[in-house]
Design a protein around this nucleic acid. Structure first.
Length: 428
RNA sequence: GGAGAGGUGGCUGAGUGGUUGAAAGCGGCUCCCUGCUAAGGAGUUACAGGAGGCAACUUCUGUCGAGGGUUCGAAUCCCUCCCUCUCCGCCA
């Protein structure tokens, strides 16, 4: 959410910054609403001030021994009632207008960072650097072909269990998924991240706090009988972990790592990535999350990206780092680095992590602050996948595939998986 | 699901209609003392929004789970809802 004061006082700045994201909107009307709301508030508080004085006077008189039914007191009471009615009138207007304002503000995305390059869509994203040597041979298999052959998962049977875009991992596939989760959690906790295992059902306030609502309701699964939704990412419960809190400045940054299943409706992506592990309604992810001091968030962003990259490096997976342009930024982000892993079978780089700094956008929605001396200020939040498990598995399969049909796994996984080789399994 | 208890500042916890935005303690901050550490002393310390000032700050309003109501006046009384805890039942 954007600062209301900014809307009132510098609407042009907001209009300009949102235009960088490709959003054109009439900020004059928004500014007027904000201004009206403030004017009403001012009117009301002046009336209330008078009302309070009258109340005090009555109390004072009664204490001095006036008869509560004396005309002086009756007069004051009448005045009090008069004011009460006027206040009620203003309050009614105020309520309507601030509901409108709030709804509008909640629907505006974050302002892009000055460092975020201008651009219209993903074509304008900038590659920053590459790591590792991508395999380029011809005739390499895509990950679902490999998985099918050695029986790591079963999508056909899964349709009986739930729907398309879900997967049932089998045998080595199930074990590898588990190994990857543990491997990543261990790697991050060894670097000072605190491990969290959050609930998967979250309430509306949590989704609002991190920016998924009100705008993207159709992207999440919801429970019809309760005020609960399935988390689209652990970013949601992690943001709300400290919702409405004032965090001690000397404890910042707070760094969390959470494994969670993630649920997304993927509305509007019919026909895209229909095979394999790339785009599923349910997938596993290890998420990194920082609550940072507002002046340290730039360094934090570099660090969280680094920490996500460390997973790819440990798994010996070639990747590149992409800086998203303004037009491709997520709703809450002010600046984002995507990590794209090389998929030799597809001969393409695919997003496997997205590391964003959300400045005070989520903190304002969630009311997460810190205190320095006498002033409280909003903290900054950052998030990054570290990493998406399914896509990591896809990358491992395609990068590790060998002539004999087996898959070689990186050494780092051996303690977790128990082997460095995936072989066909005929039991399934 | 049944019965009961409760939701107050960063935390613990007083407070049942009239200067109570709220005692006390803890914690935090500032200063003093101390050779160091430990301890001690003095002061200070809710949040949000508005107005004024370059600023330190001053001032107004709101906020004691949320929303209504009673009243000139509500943390305190009434209603509705939400949440937490305890016990019982059911259950992984």
């Amino acid at each position: 959410m954007l600062d209301q004061r900014l809307v009132r006082e510098r609407p042009n700045l907001i209009a300009h910054e949102l235009e960088r994201r490709g959003i054109k909107l009439d900020l004059n009307s928004l500014q007027q609403i904000a201004q009206q709301q403030r004017d009403l508030e001012e009117q009301r508080s002046k009336l209330q001030s008078r009302g309070n004085l009258i109340g005090k006077e009555v109390g004072e008189k009664i204490r001095q021994g006036f008869d509560p039914k004396a005309p002086e007191i009756r007069e004051l009471r009448d005045q009090g009632n008069q004011i009460k009615q006027e206040v009620a009138l203003i309050e009614e207007k105020e309520k309507t207008i601030s509901a409108v304002l709030k709804e509008k503000l909640l629907s505006l995305p974050n302002l892009p960072s000055p460092e975020c390059p201008d651009g219209k869509d993903e074509k304008d994203n900038q590659e920053k650097y590459r790591w590792g040597a991508p395999r380029q041979e011809a005739n390499l298999e895509e990950h679902w072909e490999i998985a099918n052959r050695i029986k790591l998962f079963d999508t056909e049977r899964t349709a009986k269990i739930s729907q398309s875009r879900f997967v049932t991992l089998l045998g080595q596939g199930a074990r590898l998924e588990r190994a990857l989760i543990n491997f990543m959690l261990d790697l991050h906790t060894s670097k000072g991240y605190q491990e969290v295992f959050p609930p998967v059902l979250v309430n509306t306030a949590s989704l609002k706090g991190s920016g998924q609502l009100p705008k993207f309701a159709d992207e999440s699964f919801r429970c019809i009988d309760d005020d609960l939704w399935l988390t689209p990412t652990a970013e949601v419960p992690l943001t709300s972990l400290h919702r409405e809190e004032i965090l001690a400045a000397n404890k910042l940054p707070l760094k969390y790592v959470a494994y969670s299943p993630c649920f997304r409706r993927e509305a509007g992506s019919y026909g895209k990535d229909t095979k394999g592990l790339i785009r599923l309604h349910q997938f596993n992810k290890v998420e990194l999350y920082w609550f940072a001091h507002p002046e340290k968030s730039k360094e934090a962003h570099a660090q969280i990206t680094n920490d996500a990259e460390a997973v790819l490096q440990a798994l010996e997976l070639p990747y590149r780092v992409i800086e998203l342009c303004t037009g491709d930024l997520g709703f809450s982000a002010s600046r984002t680095f995507d990590l794209e892993v090389w998929l030799p079978g597809a001969q393409a780089y695919r997003e496997i992590s997205s590391c964003s700094v959300c400045t005070d956008f989520q903190a304002r929605r969630s009311s997460i602050r810190t205190k320095e001396g006498k002033t409280t200020r909003l903290i900054h939040t950052l998030n990054g996948s570290g990493l998406a498990i399914g896509r990591t598995m896809a990358a491992l399969l395609e990068n590790g595939q060998q002539q004999d049909g087996t898959v070689k796994l990186p050494e780092a996984l051996v303690p977790y998986f128990g082997s460095d080789l995936l072989q066909p399994d005929f039991r399934y």
